[in-house]
Amino acid sequence: MTGFGFRLGGELALERDRERRWIAAVVGALAFLATLALGLALALAGTAGRWQASFQGTLTVELPAGADNAAVLRALRAEPAILRVEPIDRRRSEALLAPWLGAGNLADLPIPGLIDVKLRDGAYLDVRSLEAKLAALVPGAVVDDHARWLGGFLALARAALIVASIVVVAVGLAAASCVAFATRAGLAMHREAVDLLHLVGAEDGYIAGQFAGAAMRLAFAGAATGALGGAAVLALAHSIASSSATLAFPLPALGALDWVALAAIPLAATAVAAVAAYATVMRNLGRIL
């Protein structure tokens, strides 16, 4: 039917042009990259956040192998800021180490004594002075508040997020310039029809709207495909990494909010394409009567 073509794409029938379909492929590839970059960074940040939360308010006391922990336990339990003190017995330590060292090699190994300490919610404890106190009881006692390596990991996650944001912005700019380029070509190709629309009284925005609509459809088709591809790769990477015993830590899973952020990528790509096409047409029409 005649009305259908009109309603789909307007009088310029831009949706029929095969010349600009590559836009969908380019935007799709860019959305794929953006999804991967952002997905990995979000997963890393999520893990860092979860670990930080789970170590919040916990300490680990390390005693030299063979040391007597009774005095240390008493001193710890006397601290008002401490909620719970739980020594890790030799069997549990061995179980923790077995995957790394092999179960058979542990028997004669001097394994340091470990004590898990849980602080009261919101309580403050000076870790250094606690350490000094314990070292007086058992020379070589160390109090680890996980700050050092957790801090490094948090910084890494933050850096990954920054890099991913830069990638997303760069990818968005690349998509915008592709759309602008394709739109200029489309304007030239449809010059006669555009002139006619002007002569029968169309405003520039009416014409720009048709180009924006066409660019949006192409960009959305491409970006949705690319983002789905990226999400599939992320899910696959996660399942491979978590089933593999060789990794030091499992590749983290994405949370619900992370998936929402990733879903925003094709929507953002669509919006970028619409704005780029609209602005390109408006700027270029300003130069002709």
Partner: peptide, 9 residues
């Protein structure tokens, strides 16, 4: 649709 153009715009 050609005839309708001036009104549609």
């Amino acid at each position: 649709d050609n005839v309708a153009l001036p009104l549609r715009v």
